[in-house]
Design a protein around this nucleic acid. Structure first.
Lengths: 101, 101
DNA sequence: TTGACATGATACCATTTGGCACCCTAATTA
DNA sequence: TAATTAGGGTGCCAAATGGTATCATGTCAA
């Protein structure tokens, strides 16, 4: 879980995940979309893979990087624990609004 | 949003949020629960506050730190975008399981 | 008023992080 | 076969990060 949270902490890595949501891409294709070198993009990809957020598939000399949304589950699970406090607050807000009617 | 993601990237800070889910606590009370100095805890609290994940209230010489779950919304919103890919996968899995019946 | 307590702020240190330059290997293709 | 193309890997660097130690300030209690 720590690896996933860490991977999501960088804005470039979140953008990479968004880009991959449209389909798998090679390192080269991703590099064309970001203002940095291929080596830098590659490093981000390694971090994302460590976090279980993407999988790679080698085909010839190309490596396709594919979104692995299941890797987000530990993150959402952790966050969902706090929904109860958010929901309570929402309920209180709704009560307030209702009382105004 | 970046500040919130960054705040969540550190395990100690996530533990602090969990601790605060039981109620607001002073810096001193939090320090007693973590193996580090008060200054270190304080730094984490500043990062969490920057991320909008907690609010502070000064009362006399004590500062109460309170969970601010609404600050998690930008994070969950961003993650929810990926639910469609996760859900698609789940649907496919469910179809597979159903076919087995 | 004085001493103890809770906190804030800062300086300093070791490690991690994001990025680039560079070199090497493998695969494609003229 | 030779040249080009896609990647992987490493070393280096500046900046950010997590921690500690230390000093200063405000508050409570005797």
């Amino acid at each position: 879980m720590q690896a996933a949270f860490r991977a999501l902490a960088d804005p470039t890595r979140r953008d990479i995940l968004t880009a991959l949501s449209t389909g798998e891409m090679t390192v080269q294709q991703l590099t064309e979309r970001f203002p940095m070198t291929r080596a830098a993009v590659k490093k981000h990809l390694v971090v994302l893979e460590d976090g279980g957020l993407l999988t790679t598939r080698r085909q010839g000399r190309e490596t396709f990087n594919k979104l692995h949304p299941e890797g987000l589950k530990p993150v959402t699970d952790w966050l969902n624990y706090f929904d109860q406090f958010w929901d309570t607050h929402l309920s209180a807000l709704q009560s307030t609004l209702t009382q105004k009617d």
